[in-house]
Design a protein around this nucleic acid. Structure first.
Lengths: 194, 194
DNA sequence: GAATTAAATGAACAATGTTCATGAATTGAA
DNA sequence: TTCAATTCATGAACATTGTTCATTTAATTC
């Protein structure tokens, strides 16, 4: 790899970490192209040499977050034998991840592409991969479902848990204390899975 | 009421309906101050005489939407005797409302105030009012819960249904056909409420 | 080491929310 | 009715953005 290519790659990386730090600290809505390039120590235009546009960079930020999330959920769910307990552990792990990485986590779900553009396939796949973690314990509970139905059911349950966690981290309704929220989630999964 | 006050009130109204039409047609993300004032037939600055800023106007748009939503859910849930069926009817009505008023509905949940500002109390109350519709059939099922717990549980269930509907109207995961989605929702409520 | 090529640069542009001095129109008293 | 006082709509101007592109700078090639 020549000096040119190496420098470009380094810059691309620097921009990504700068963006991640910014989103982590201040949230997606305060992310500014000029801040990122300042942090990365390069010119404004450089961002558009390394990424198609801000959206593209944000997708890469979210990709990293999904990686972290998948790791966190994987750690939580793997060695729990009882499928219902495994699902509970996954739900709680999801909640914990969201709380501990609030800005990164919400960036994943807040970000919307502009009209006409659509999420790249590789990023869609990263999203879908989350469901695979749920599918295994799920299949142990619902033995009557085929592959296809299991996928759909996993999606439904993930969406439900996501909704509960999501609404809690807004100020739309009364906010629940951490403990109440956790026990609501556990009750919820118990009810759903038994 | 003098001519002055009347004109001001009329303009305030015109701006609101213009904003509603714009959101309805193109979504919150394409709402522009200049478009609204053009539609309403007034100058740009006028918007800031009638509303504090765009956020304030959007909150009023969302307030109208919540009114429509409450009406739609009220119509669906009232005269269903069986509480589980009532909850199902509410969930389906929520889905239908979201589908039929996609842009208005998503505006309610997409809109976030800027740092430092917080949702006005009257608008928070409008949000909370949704939960009251769920609370009645809910109390028939969970007779052991007190007022406080019932409120919390209603919130949890609403959030779950909202999550399912919400994820379906994004392109994050594979999209479900209308029928599959409906039956997933019904299965879901059944499982949760029995 | 010179010529070629490619990439970083940052000034300039377009779009957008918001403000404010100005002017026009309503109001209320003479 | 008339005329000053007042109030409110006006839209030009500003600040902040994302994005582009001609220019400069540096690496690559022969």
């Amino acid at each position: 790899m020549g000096k040119r290519e190496a420098a470009h790659k380094l810059l691309t990386e620097k921009l990504l970490t700068a963006a991640i730090l910014r989103v982590e600290k201040s949230g997606l809505e305060h992310l500014r192209a000029r801040d990122i390039t300042n942090d990365a120590g390069c010119a404004l235009g450089t961002l558009y040499k390394c990424y198609a546009d801000l959206d593209d960079l944000i997708i890469h930020v979210n990709s990293k977050t999904l990686g972290l999330m998948k790791k966190a959920l994987g750690d939580a769910g793997t060695d729990v034998a009882d499928p219902v307990e495994a699902l509970k552990a996954l739900a709680i792990a999801y909640l914990d991840f969201a709380v501990e990485n609030k800005n990164l986590w919400s960036a994943v779900f807040k970000h919307r592409l502009h009209e006409g553009q659509s999420t790249p396939e590789w990023h869609r796949m990263e999203n879908m991969a989350l469901l695979d973690l749920i599918a295994k314990p799920m299949s142990a509970i619902n033995t009557d479902l085929d592959e296809q139905q299991l996928q759909v059911r996993s999606r439904t349950y993930f969406a439900a848990v996501h909704g509960i966690v999501s609404i809690s981290l807004q100020d739309r309704f009364i906010s629940l204390s951490g403990d109440v929220l956790r026990s609501e989630l556990e009750h919820f999964v118990e009810r759903l899975a038994n």
